[in-house]
Amino acid sequence: MPAWTRAYVRFVEAMNYRVGRFAMYLLYVMMAILLWSSVTKIMHVPALWTLEMAQFTLVAYFMLGAPYSLQLDTNVRMDLIYARFTTKGQALWDVFTVFCLMFYLGVMLWGAFDATAYSFAVNERNPTAWRPPLWPIKSVITFAFALMLLQASAHLIRDIATIRGEKI
């Protein structure tokens, strides 16, 4: 494999590793928000923002953790047949399925970008008592789909290297 493909894979995986490790700590942020919600309800002054903020944090946790999950190969797969393949057979199957994944992620990225642009343009807000703007979470979703697409392409390059008998 050319040196630039190796550098690309290392760069994408390093970036997704850092983002994924950051996303892991969003679970603690969400727990703190929900704890604050409980405390304010006990004190009979419930905060309006806690439920939505916990939901936004969970979305960020899930979406930003997805490329990291793909990188670590901890995503769900049917091992009934896949586990019986040789390493090259698994890489061939992964090449086929990663194209399906990349098509799906491309469509989702397009939709997410469109929704984010609309959210910016009209200053879209959630129709609740708190009324937070929606562009920040939609931007996170768009960014996460872009990271996932980059990770899928890095995965494709790794699989092609495996088929060729090379190591990245």
Rank of each mutant, 00 (worst) to 15 (best):
V122H: 11
S38Q: 08
L109E: 07
W36F: 10
T40E: 02
N126K: 07
L92P: 05
R84H: 15
Y25C: 06
S69T: 15
E13Y: 01
T128P: 04
W36Y: 09
Y104C: 11
G20I: 04
E52W: 09
T50Q: 05
I168K: 03
T40W: 00
R77L: 15
R6M: 06
I81M: 12
Q90Y: 12
P2M: 06
Y28K: 04
A112C: 10
M43G: 12
F96D: 07
L149E: 00
D159N: 14
L150P: 00
F120T: 07
L72A: 14
T162E: 05
R131F: 12
K138M: 11
A32D: 04
F113I: 11
D114F: 12
F22N: 03
V12A: 03
S37P: 00
R125T: 13
D159H: 03
A146V: 08
L64C: 09
R158H: 02
A129E: 10
T128W: 13
Q151P: 02
Y28P: 01
M30I: 06
S119C: 08
T97W: 05
Y8C: 08
S38P: 01
I157E: 01
T87H: 15
A47H: 08
L48F: 01
T86L: 05
A7Q: 13
L34S: 04
A14T: 07
F96H: 10
W135P: 02
A66S: 14
N123T: 07
A161Q: 07
E52F: 05
T5K: 11
S37D: 10
V122L: 06
L149I: 00
A117D: 05
K167L: 11
V29C: 09
L26H: 06
L134R: 09
I160M: 04
R125Q: 10
K167C: 12
F96Q: 07
R21T: 07
A83N: 14
Y28D: 05
M30F: 08
E52R: 03
R21W: 03
G89A: 09
A32N: 08
V122W: 07
T50E: 07
Y68G: 01
A7C: 09
Q55V: 15
R125W: 08
F120N: 03
T40P: 00
V140G: 04
S119W: 06
V59W: 02
M1D: 04
F11Y: 12
F85T: 11
L27Q: 12
G20P: 02
L64W: 11
P136H: 05
V19Q: 00
W110Q: 09
R84G: 11
M63I: 04
Y118C: 06
T128D: 13
V59M: 10
H44P: 01
W93G: 14
T142I: 05
W49L: 06
K88H: 09
F113W: 11
I81K: 11
A60W: 08
V45C: 03
F99W: 14
V140H: 03
G165L: 00
V39D: 00
E13P: 00
L64S: 05
L147V: 01
S153C: 12
K138L: 15
V39W: 05
Q90T: 13
N126L: 15
M24W: 13
